[in-house]
């Protein structure tokens, strides 16, 4: 779906902001560009919708080299979410959401319908918010309007630049949860930029960890944890390593190492798709029954711990 091929970009003579970057993002995948500020992740993102032009190399979206398209045409087919939302202060919420469909000259009724659908899905009751001004909304609401605006024209690709970065920690967690649950996002190809490791592991189907304009490692969250490609990756993940593992590891990943215990009276309280963090919360009070692949196991605290230890070795 999206392919970067030996892309270079620099802003000054000394150092490349993006240095020989190649990667591919598959259809429907969420790729997270992760790294500290100045690592080139935002530059990479902005080159994909041509807010920046690479010095050399090629970028393909949907198999097409993006320079063959007019920038406006390209951008109208890519949703774009910014950290500070960039909502138009002189447009109402519904007008903001309708911007791209209007640019694409959809007819009015269709636009109206689409706006209402999106507002409903993003928990912004149209009756209350359609004619509100962005300044009247909370930060979390504004970010949701920004997301709705990016999704309005049904773009196959979504670029998100620190979409939760401006929110306070509590709001960030709740908006992120909604984001994960949103069906509108499930089939889209998403590239998301963040410096928040936890966010990257929670949202990314794959993570591209960058430093000084180059890729340090590109892989699934588990791959990064299990087989860090180099010292940098290991060091970058080290402070939150245990937390990340617990949140990334799913019960099904541990299945072979979980002890076979049987007992009566336990109800199924966990699915095998839930992660160890959630499992630990559940088993603190009492053991619970987990079902996976026509097999049932009783999970308790010590069993879970042993399984994790076994997985790590």
């Amino acid at each position: 779906m999206i392919k970067l091929d030996h892309v270079f970009k620099n802003f000054g003579p000394q150092k490349n902001a993006v240095n020989d970057l190649s990667l591919e993002v598959a259809d429907g995948e969420t790729l997270v560009l992760l790294g500290t500020s100045g690592c080139g992740k935002t530059t990479t993102l902005r080159m994909i919708n041509r807010l920046l032009e690479p010095d050399s190399g090629h970028i393909y979206v949907n198999g097409k080299e993006i320079r063959q398209l007019a920038p406006e045409t390209l951008r109208r087919n890519i949703g774009y979410v910014l950290q500070n939302t960039g909502l138009f202060p002189h447009y109402t919420v519904s007008e903001n959401i309708a911007i791209v469909p209007s640019l694409l000259q959809w007819d009015k009724a269709t636009i109206q319908q689409r706006v209402i659908t999106l507002m409903d899905k993003l928990h912004l009751p149209p009756v209350e918010y359609a004619d509100a001004w962005p300044q009247q909304l909370s930060g979390g609401q504004q970010q949701r309007v920004g997301l709705a605006r990016a999704l309005a024209a049904n773009p196959p690709v979504l670029l998100m630049d620190e979409p939760f970065g401006a929110l306070d920690p509590l709001t960030r967690i709740s908006v992120r949860r909604e984001f994960k649950a949103l069906d509108e996002l499930s089939n889209r190809t998403i590239i998301l930029v963040t410096h928040d490791v936890e966010e990257a592991f929670e949202l990314g189907s794959r993570i591209c960890l960058m430093n000084e304009g180059t890729i340090q490692q590109l892989g699934t969250p588990l791959e990064l944890l299990r087989r860090p490609a180099n010292e940098f990756v290991a060091a970058f993940l080290a402070p939150q390593r245990l937390l990340l593992e617990l949140k990334t590891l799913k019960i099904k990943d541990l299945w072979p190492w979980l002890p076979h215990q049987h007992g009566p009276g336990h109800t199924t309280a966990l699915s095998a798709d839930q992660n160890c963090w959630e499992a630990m919360e559940a088993v603190i009070s009492q053991p619970v029954l987990v079902q996976y692949a026509q097999e049932q196991k009783i999970l308790d605290g010590s069993g879970l711990m042993q399984a994790i230890a076994a997985w790590k070795n």
């Binding site: 919708n49 807010l51 920038p71 406006e72 045409t73 390209l74 951008r75 109208r76 087919n77 774009y80 910014l82 950290q83 500070n84 939302t85 960039g86 909502l87 138009f88 202060p89 911007i99 791209v100 640019l103 605006r149």
Partner: peptide
């Protein structure tokens, strides 16, 4: 004009003319 707003407008595919007149 807030730089984020103009960037959002450009990023959504507004032409320079649309950016000028609408934003």
């Amino acid at each position: 004009v807030d730089a984020t707003v103009t960037e959002a407008a450009t990023g959504m595919g507004m032409s320079r003319r649309q950016l000028l007149y609408k934003v």
